[in-house]
Write a protein that binds this DNA or RNA. Structure first.
Lengths: 335, 335
DNA sequence: TTGTACGCGTTATCAC
DNA sequence: GTGATAACGCGTACAA
């Protein structure tokens, strides 16, 4: 059995309350006993029991992270896990643990959030938002569970998000700098705020330059690679082709690139393509794809940081956009 | 404040010990009081506190999952997270929680495993093996922490792994069926057991058909996309080219495909290429890449299942290979 | 500055 | 069948 606070107290020749005070740095303890206690802890390899501590303090030093965890989601949505890594990193630095929870499962079971709260498993949660977020958010509020959402939300919820509008601006500026003038935007889904925000940045930058889009934005219905062929057909039926595409998602961009190339277009010189996020295969398309990359690890760290601030001060409401992003200019957007 | 066992007992008009027995289905309880207690629990929305339960039973109903969680690992190693999803799914079905831990951080801090054990944060751990696994494994054994490794290990450790040899056989059989005869293997790294196991299956299948490899296997030094160009130069310097390549990793396969194509080879008819794992971009290469896909979600589920068996019976030692895999025949291996 | 005693919410072991 | 009660290990008033 592992050592307890009693063992430490006995070895150091003090009372357990003294040991406790040394641990929490509270109360006035003489330097001498402090080091005696520290030595004893070292010697016994003592670490306080989570459970006892949680019971006494009524908290768990653990946060829950809710994301979609179905089969194949790691390949379909690797960025979610990149955020997760950032969260874990920051939590570890604050001596917090990360409990992984499946958002879909939680959302389906009626009283799962109630249980999470009642069991005191987590002090707070970070939710990766998708279309099913509102139902969970309502439950968090009902149970006074501190929470922070990744992805902008309506209503009085704390959230952090990427500034997709800004990303759209950066990408558009890049295309203009490369000399393209007949720009068109392609989004993943008309109701996807990521796409529409990026589109807003696109439109704004063009307007600032006194330019108009070559044609109205086009939208897929999900943003998968396979949808690109049909979209490309739509593009071809326009009176004239654009000279550059800004595509909201990586897979779709890769698909459009392939389709256009298959039609004999020279990607780069004849048709520029730029997109967002730096999936590994962005470098591996022929030609390699230009992207505005977003630091998702940093987003995760930021999310955790904000959640902790909120744990300390529950009234705090954060709604902030991250600007950490970087342009990778590759041949797909070089004339 | 949430309801406690006392509240339930009071409302049901019984003693707390009776409530506890109802929960654990132990002891003889009359059907009448059983339902009275159940009703009270429902009414109060009662869920037992994790901490109190953990303290009393000295366990946490939580397992730790140790994986590399650095920046960019979600994109570089999405398969790790696919496994994680499988683990979470199975744990949730058993009412266990999953604590996420960074293997690298744990491995660097000297007494981190000791702390994990002393704090009773987890009942056991699943480790995703890499080259740094042995140091952690030693600590698990020292502290009697039940553990299971994903990836074959020397020594008396429980592990589950993909049967990479079998995957190699399947892929090789496929290439032979397609009519290719001058096969050559390309591995990620000469010391990478995944590569060497796949190579073993390759060699065995050829031998069974009375064939020899076209040329000795070639190895990269990491398996990244960028290394493919240099490897392709090596291949070209051989007296004759193979008519098909079996490549241990997806990124490398995509790179070789591009390099060969750049050299004017007609992928499929002139040079067949097959690989392993079904990364999303396997479908997106030109032509799409044939792969033997491995069910990593199932691997995760299996890992969790085995860890639980071991928690129940610590002497149990499992060392098993999973066969769940599937061939995706695509144009890259069609003559 | 240090020590005592109780509470936190369970489980498990008895006695009834 | 049911109920009291002693752990479990830590935090913390309060007393010394």
């Amino acid at each position: 059995m592992a050592a307890t606070i009693h063992d430490v107290a006995r070895l150091a020749g003090v009372a357990i309350s003294t040991v406790s005070k040394v641990m929490s740095d509270s109360g006035r303890i003489s330097e001498q006993t402090r080091t005696r206690v520290r030595d004893a802890m070292q010697q016994l390899d003592y670490h306080p029991s989570r459970h006892a501590r949680g019971l006494a303090r009524n908290c768990s030093d653990t946060i829950g992270v809710l994301m979609p965890l179905q089969r194949n989601s790691a390949f379909a949505n690797p960025y979610v896990f990149e955020i997760l890594c950032g969260i874990e990193r920051y939590c570890a630095s604050q001596h917090y643990s990360v409990l992984l929870l499946d958002a879909d499962a939680l959302q389906q079971e009626p009283k799962s959030v109630a249980r999470l709260v009642a069991e005191r498993k987590v002090d707070g949660v970070i939710l990766h938002a998708d279309d099913k977020a509102p139902a969970l958010l309502r439950q968090f509020s009902e149970h006074d569970l501190p929470h922070l959402v990744i992805g902008r939300q309506p209503g009085p919820h704390s959230w952090v998000d990427i500034d997709n509008r800004h990303a759209g601006q950066l990408a558009t500026q890049h295309l203009l700098q490369q000399g393209y003038r007949r720009l068109q935007f392609v989004g993943n889904h008309a109701a996807d705020t990521i796409s529409t925000d990026r589109l807003a940045g696109f439109a704004q930058t063009l307007a600032e330059q006194g330019l108009a889009p070559h044609a109205p934005a086009l939208f897929a219905t999900g943003g998968q690679y396979g949808e690109a062929a049909a979209l490309w057909q739509q593009l071809r039926q326009q009176p004239t082709l654009p000279d550059a595409l800004l595509v909201a998602g990586n897979p779709l961009a890769a698909g459009l690139l392939a389709a256009a190339q298959h039609d004999g277009l020279n990607i780069g010189p004849t048709l520029g393509i730029a997109s967002f996020d730096n999936y590994p295969y962005a470098e591996q398309t022929q030609p390699p794809l230009s992207v505005v990359d977003i630091d998702l690890f940093a987003l995760g760290e930021q999310a955790a940081r904000e959640l902790f601030l909120q744990l300390a001060k529950p009234s705090r409401l954060v709604q902030s956009l991250l600007l950490e992003m970087q342009l990778f200019a590759r041949p797909s957007s070089q004339r």
